[in-house]
C-alpha cells in the first residue's frame, strides 16, 4: 500500500517534469517570427474569440452609448449656439432687406430728380389714393412746410402725373391727369399740333385719357407721342404724357377723338416729384 503510494507520487512528479519539458520545447519551437499558426492554436483561438467578440461588441456598445450621452450635452449646447446664430442671421437678413428696399426707394428718388434736370423738384411719396370711384386724386407726404404750393406740377419718372390742388402743413392733394375733370393742353411731338387731353371715368382704370379738339387737318398715327404744350400756364412744356393708342375718325370731323395711353402707370405709382420752380443755374 505504502509502496503503491510512493509510486503514485513519483509518477505524478515524472509527468509534471515531462509537461514542463514539453512546454519548454513548445516555447522553443514556437519562438519564431515567421511561423505558421497550428491547428490547435486556431481551434483555441476560435473558441476564445467567439465570446471575446461578444464581449468586445457589448463593451463597445456601452462605451459608445456613454459617449453618446456625453455628446448630448455638447450637441444641445451646439444647437443652442446655432439657434442664436440663426436668429442673428435672420435679424441681419431682415436688416438687409430693409436696406435693400430703402436703397431702391432712394434710387427711385435719385432717378426721379435726374429725370428733370431743368427743374428744382421735391420728391414725395403717395400716402393714399382717392376712395371715390369718380375722382382720381392722391395725397402725398409733402406739404406747405416743404415748400409745396397749390397749382404746382407733379411728375413721375415716366411723365406727367397731375397738379397740386390743395396743401396742408404736411400733405398735399394731387389731381391726376386721369381725373375726368382735369384737362391738359398738349401737343404731338411729331407735328407740334396743339390739342386738349381730358380724363374720362370709363378709361381712367386703364391709364388712358382722351384727346379732344383735334384739328381736322391733323392725322394722328398710333404711337404718336404726346407731351405738354405749355399753353394755359399751369404745366411747363415738354413733359411727356403718353402715346396715341387709337384714333377714331367720326362723321363730324370736329368730334374726332383719340385715346392716349399714359406713360405713367398710375396703378403702381408710389413716388412722385413736385416741380417747385424752373432751375436757374447755380444757386450760389
Amino acid at each position: 500500500m505504502i509502496f503503491g503510494g510512493i509510486m503514485e507520487n513519483k509518477l505524478k512528479k515524472f509527468f509534471l517534469v515531462i509537461f514542463v519539458i514539453l512546454i519548454f520545447i513548445c516555447i522553443g519551437l514556437t519562438n519564431g517570427n515567421n511561423r505558421k499558426i497550428t491547428i490547435i492554436e486556431t481551434i483555441f483561438s476560435e473558441i476564445i474569440s467567439i465570446p471575446q467578440k461578444g464581449y468586445i461588441y457589448a463593451k463597445n456598445w456601452i462605451t459608445n452609448n456613454t459617449n453618446f450621452f456625453n455628446q448630448v450635452d455638447e450637441l444641445q449646447e451646439e444647437n443652442k449656439k446655432l439657434k442664436t446664430e440663426n436668429e442673428e442671421l435672420n435679424a441681419k437678413l431682415i436688416n438687409y432687406e430693409v436696406i435693400l428696399s430703402e436703397n431702391s426707394i432712394l434710387k427711385e428718388h435719385v432717378n426721379l430728380t435726374e429725370s428733370y434736370p431743368e427743374y428744382n423738384v421735391i420728391v414725395a411719396d403717395i400716402i393714399s389714393e382717392s376712395a371715390s370711384n369718380w375722382e382720381e386724386t392722391y395725397i402725398i407726404n409733402r406739404g406747405e412746410r416743404d415748400g409745396v404750393k397749390p397749382d404746382m406740377v407733379v411728375v413721375a419718372e415716366e411723365g406727367l402725373v397731375g397738379y397740386i390742388s390743395s396743401v396742408t402743413n404736411n400733405t398735399a392733394k394731387v389731381i391726376s391727369i386721369l381725373d375726368p375733370g382735369n384737362s391738359v393742353s398738349v401737343r404731338t411731338t411729331r407735328t407740334r399740333d396743339s390739342l386738349i387731353s381730358k380724363g374720362n371715368s370709363a378709361l381712367s382704370n386703364e391709364n388712358k385719357i382722351k384727346l379732344t379738339k383735334i384739328p381736322t387737318s391733323l392725322t394722328l398715327v398710333e404711337g404718336d407721342r404726346i407731351e405738354t404744350s405749355g399753353l394755359g400756364g399751369r404745366y411747363p412744356k415738354g413733359i411727356p404724357i403718353g402715346q396715341v393708342e387709337t384714333y377714331t375718325i367720326k362723321k363730324n370731323p370736329v368730334e374726332n377723338e383719340a385715346i392716349v395711353k399714359t406713360f405713367v402707370d398710375f396703378n403702381k405709382l408710389e413716388t412722385v416729384a413736385i416741380i417747385v420752380e424752373e432751375y436757374s443755374g447755380d444757386t450760389n
Binding site: N133, W134, N200, S201
Partner: peptide, 28 residues
C-alpha cells in the same frame, strides 16, 4: 353715387358716360 356723379359732371364738366356710371354703381 348717382347724385355724386351728376354733381361732379355739373361742377367739373365731366364727360357724362352713362354706361360707365351704371356699371360702376352696380358693382359698388
Amino acid at each position: 353715387e348717382t347724385i355724386c356723379y351728376l354733381m361732379l359732371c355739373i361742377i367739373y364738366r365731366y364727360d357724362f358716360v352713362f354706361l360707365d356710371m351704371v356699371w360702376k354703381i352696380i358693382l359698388e
